[in-house]
Structures are given as structure tokens and as C-alpha cells.
Amino acid sequence: MRKPKILVVDDDPDLVKAMRLRLRANNCEVITVSDGYSVIGAAQKERPDVIILDLGLPAGDGFVVLERLQSSDTLSGIPVIVLTARDPQGNEQRALKAGAAAFFQKPVDNDELMNVIRVSLPHRSAPGVPMMS
């Protein structure tokens, strides 16, 4: 079975490196983008199974990215998991209303994040999916 492909969008290179290690250890293929502007292009080219999106991004705030993804016929079906240091009060509801599948405040519990990625994957939620360690 093809490895799940995850697009990580965050402007903190140290955090992106750690996320890449963690996701790869969970048998995922990882692509990364560090600004809001490049997300749509990367998503169209790579067709990720899930997008992990920070809200505070250079060149296009996370909410703008969510809006663009939702308005695209080809990309609106990709589950977006918001992972941000911002306060959930206000931001969580706004992100969910804008189409995010889940909202996590940093620092996130890794097991919880992996679990949400697993259930967000289309046709991969059956037990025994090789992704989970």
C-alpha cells in the first residue's frame, strides 16, 4: 500500500524537521512548505492525503490558505489539521468553520495528532494500517 502523504506547512524550520522525523517514523511520506503562498501549488502538485497547517504564516495567513483550499474543486476534499501556537478561543471555531478537520494548540500530544491523522486518511482508517507505530 502507498504510504500516506502529509504536507506540513510551518515557518519554523526546527519544528518542521522534528515533525518530518516523527511522521517518517510513522511510515508517512512528508512534504514541507514554509509559507502560505506556496501551499496551493504544492498541494496541486503533490496531492497530499492530509495537510498539517500552522496559522501564523508569512505570505498568506493560515485562514487565507484554508479559504483557498476550500474554494478549490480539486483540493477541498483534503483534510486539514490546524496546528498552531495561537489561542483556541476564537481561532478554533473560526478554523473549524473555515473547513479544518481538527484544531490543535502547540505543543501537541503526538499520539493524539497521529490518531487524528489516521482517522482523517480516506479509506485508511481500518485497523492494521501500517502507518501507526
Binding site: 519554523d12 522534528a18 515533525m19 516523527r22 501564523g56 501556537a85 495561537r86 494548540q105 502547540k106 505543543p107
Partner: peptide
């Protein structure tokens, strides 16, 4: 918000 960002990094690498 500013404190959470480096804290997240420490958390990720320690785990």
C-alpha cells in the same frame, strides 16, 4: 503565543 513556539520545539525534540 511567543512562549509556546520555542516550548513546542523543545517538546518535539525531547519526545
Amino acid at each position: 503565543h511567543e512562549l509556546r513556539t520555542p516550548l513546542t520545539c523543545i517538546h518535539q525534540y525531547v519526545t
